[in-house]
């Protein structure tokens, strides 16, 4: 904990992520206006500042941009957590099996991962969503699939190195089942790098969701997503730049938060790199 508090990246990152989580949970209370309320006679109002009625202006349908960014944090957070969660579960399980069992199982799993890695990830995500149909759930699934190989690789390499440790041999000598050894003894010892990768994946998930939504393949109306805000605002980028500027900054800011946190966690978990 002390280490954590001393690490500037980790602290800054967790503050940003904390802000995001609190914003997402209390979005309805924080949002100054109803983010869904449209009044097309009030569209394209420029930002009016803290004292104005619309602090960050209104969008193309007269909805309050600030309120929409606040409520939009929910989808970003949800996608980051669910997509990363799914890739975590599958990635760690597959990686652990590959590393522990080895042999042909290992080879098959890793070849499949190579297969996924051979695609540029955004292209694969687009293809998956195109065949499953657009929507938040399918977008999350696509992001998860794309991120699995990284998880598998990290887990596998950790398991490989831990497999030869004395305590594993001891557990095997005691006659413990392989599943028990793998999950109770090996995996608990490699959570740190997995956590780091997972945190960094959350940042990626947010930008990929934004890209998919920008292409119209992610969240569907009336769900508010930052990527969708960018997509609908981009035409009017000259006369109403605020509609694309602020959601974009929100994406950068939260992704930055997850990346800082991931960096910090890496420094802490890998003593060799500490302070670098």
């Amino acid at each position: 904990m002390k280490q954590f508090l001393r690490n500037k990246s980790a602290v800054t990152g967790s503050i940003i992520v904390g802000i995001l989580i609190i914003t997402a949970i209390f979005a309805d209370a924080i949002a100054p206006k109803d983010p869904y309320q449209m009044d097309i006679w009030e569209s394209f109002r420029p930002p009016e500042g803290l004292r104005g009625e619309y602090i960050l202006g209104t969008d193309d349908m007269g909805r309050d941009v600030l309120s929409r960014i606040i409520v939009g944090s929910r989808i970003s957070l949800l996608v980051a957590i669910v997509a990363t969660g799914v890739s975590l579960v599958f990635g760690v399980t597959l990686g652990a099996i590959a590393g522990y069992v080895g042999g042909i199982t290992d080879a098959i799993i890793m070849r499949i991962m190579d297969l996924i890695l051979a695609f540029p990830s955004i292209l694969l995500a687009i293809a998956i969503v195109a065949s499953l149909g657009p929507g938040v759930v399918n977008a999350m699934l696509a992001i998860a699939i794309v991120r699995i190989p990284a998880m598998v690789r990290v887990t596998r390499s950790m398991v490989l190195s831990l497999r030869e440790e004395d305590f594993v041999a001891a557990a095997q000598a005691l006659g413990l089942s392989h599943a028990r050894i793998l999950f109770r003894h090996i995996l608990v010892n490699c959570y740190a790098p997995i956590l780091v990768v997972a945190t960094l994946n959350m940042g990626t998930a947010i930008t990929v969701e934004a890209t998919l939504s920008f292409l119209g393949l992610g969240a569907q109306p009336p769900i508010i997503s930052w990527g969708r805000m960018l997509a609908l605002g981009r035409e009017a980028i000259r006369t109403a730049p605020h509609i694309t500027l602020f959601p974009g900054l929100a994406i950068v800011f939260t992704t930055l938060g997850f990346n800082l946190l991931g960096d910090g966690l890496r420094d802490i978990s890998d003593p060799q790199l500490r302070g670098r």
């Binding site: 449209m38 097309i40 195109a130 149909g133 657009p134 393949l217 569907q220």
Partner: peptide, 21 residues
């Protein structure tokens, strides 16, 4: 679609919008 969805909601008609490729 979003405008119609909003108007319909005001009089108690639910419209789900699906934007497809």
């Amino acid at each position: 679609a979003e405008i119609l969805q909003f108007e319909a909601q005001q009089i108690g008609v639910k419209i789900e919008v699906f934007v497809e490729e």
